[in-house]
Computed example of a mutant assay.
Amino acid sequence: MKRKCLSSLPVGLLAALFIMVLAASALAADFPSRPFEVIAPGGAGGGWDTTARLTAKVLGETGLITQPMPVINKPGGGGGVGLAYMQKKKGDPYSLIVYSPPLLLINLTGQTKLSFRDVTPLAMLINDFGAFAVPKDSPYQTIGDVMEALKKDPKSVKTGGNSSFGSMDHIQFLQAAKAAGVENIKDIPYIAFQEGPMAALMGGHIDLLSTGMAETVGPLEAGEIRVLALTSPERVDAGVLGQVPTLKESGIDTAFINWRGFFGAPGLGEAEKAHLVEAMQKMTETAEWDDVCAKNGWTKAFMGADDFAAFLAKTEGEYKDLLTEIGLYKAQ
């Protein structure tokens, strides 16, 4: 049937189709043949920037990508500026961007109509986790103590973080509170600090800080704070944080993963997509990547394109439920 249909096409059209197929095959075989553009949708020195630069460095050092991979910072809108920029790169296999949970949250909270479906998921590379800290003289000895106080009065514990209301630091604590059986989680006070949330904690301006693990290490070693729990699925093997229980160990059956991964432009070709995913998978198996992860306290967590896309859809649903409960779900 297919042969009959093709044979009925004009010779000129058949020739054009044949040339297009050959051109696509040549592009795939020659890929990559020019420098990439790697977008970090945040400022220099942040998590996205660090992940982008170190990934590009290891891919180059190991010869898995033979073309330059310069990193360009496009901060703004919680990652929304970078996401909008990628829409101009449709089908371009040389444009890559790194993201983490805010990619989902900025869409769910109505900050942008764009979502992870408007880029091409390539690979999750690492997991990082959150931490819940209190001042050294806090009356709360365990995360369970905090949750019991919130069950009695959800306004009794003033929390804070570096991310905005409804973003990562806020959501990871609400997820823990909900799993612990706290009702009316929308009433839990949360203050977003653009900078200096640790100083606010130690100065007594908040009762509990929800933050990333790495931010707690120095103050914890200095004895200035106590970390009550980590959001990791299993206890971490990382210095002083190795002594901190997980939420699950504390009787709260949940975990919050600060994943980071790479995305291609929308409409990325399958051959180029497969090439990039394979390069990133091989990278995660190198000693160079092991060293990078160890130095940064990252957990290796490679996930290929299809599994990554499924993970994003599932996680999006979980975030949606939380944001709906606190009145912040505004996706269109």
Rank of each mutant, 00 (worst) to 15 (best):
M124T: 14
L59T: 05
H170N: 08
V227L: 15
M69I: 04
D207W: 03
F262E: 07
M198T: 13
T211D: 14
G181N: 12
H170P: 12
G82I: 01
L209Q: 15
I19R: 11
L322Q: 09
G269C: 05
D187N: 09
D153F: 03
G161R: 01
Q332N: 13
M147D: 11
A26C: 12
L312A: 07
E318R: 11
M280I: 00
T299K: 15
A192Q: 07
K2Y: 12
Q175F: 04
L22G: 12
S7F: 08
A238F: 15
A265Q: 01
E270V: 14
P139Y: 00
G204V: 14
S7C: 09
S164E: 14
K330C: 08
G181K: 09
A177F: 13
K57V: 00
L22V: 09
F302S: 06
N184W: 00
T211V: 12
T159S: 06
D291I: 06
R53N: 06
I252Q: 03
S33M: 06
L103P: 00
D237V: 08
K248N: 06
G76M: 01
A331F: 04
L122T: 07
I72F: 03
I19D: 07
H275W: 09
D306S: 10
K282N: 13
P68L: 01
D49Y: 00
T315A: 07
P102D: 02
K4D: 11
P75L: 00
L247E: 02
T51H: 06
R34F: 00
Q141W: 02
N73G: 03
M213A: 09
I252T: 10
R235E: 04
L323Y: 06
K300Q: 10
A192G: 15
Y99F: 13
L9K: 09
G78Q: 01
L150I: 12
S156P: 15
K151D: 12
S7E: 10
P10W: 00
G63E: 03
M168R: 05
D290S: 14
A271N: 08
A199K: 08
G78H: 04
L122Y: 05
L322C: 07
G160P: 13
P102K: 00
F129G: 14
K300S: 11
F116E: 07
F256T: 14
A177I: 12
I257P: 07
G63F: 02
P101G: 00
R260T: 15
P101F: 01
V146P: 08
S164N: 13
A287M: 15
G63T: 02
I188Y: 02
E288A: 11
C293Q: 07
D145C: 03
T50R: 04
A23I: 11
N184A: 09
G267A: 01
G264V: 05
L9G: 08
K90P: 14
A84V: 15
S163P: 04
N184V: 03
V217I: 14
L312W: 03
L328V: 01
T112W: 02
K4E: 14
F263R: 00
K295R: 15
Q175S: 11
T51W: 01
T142P: 09
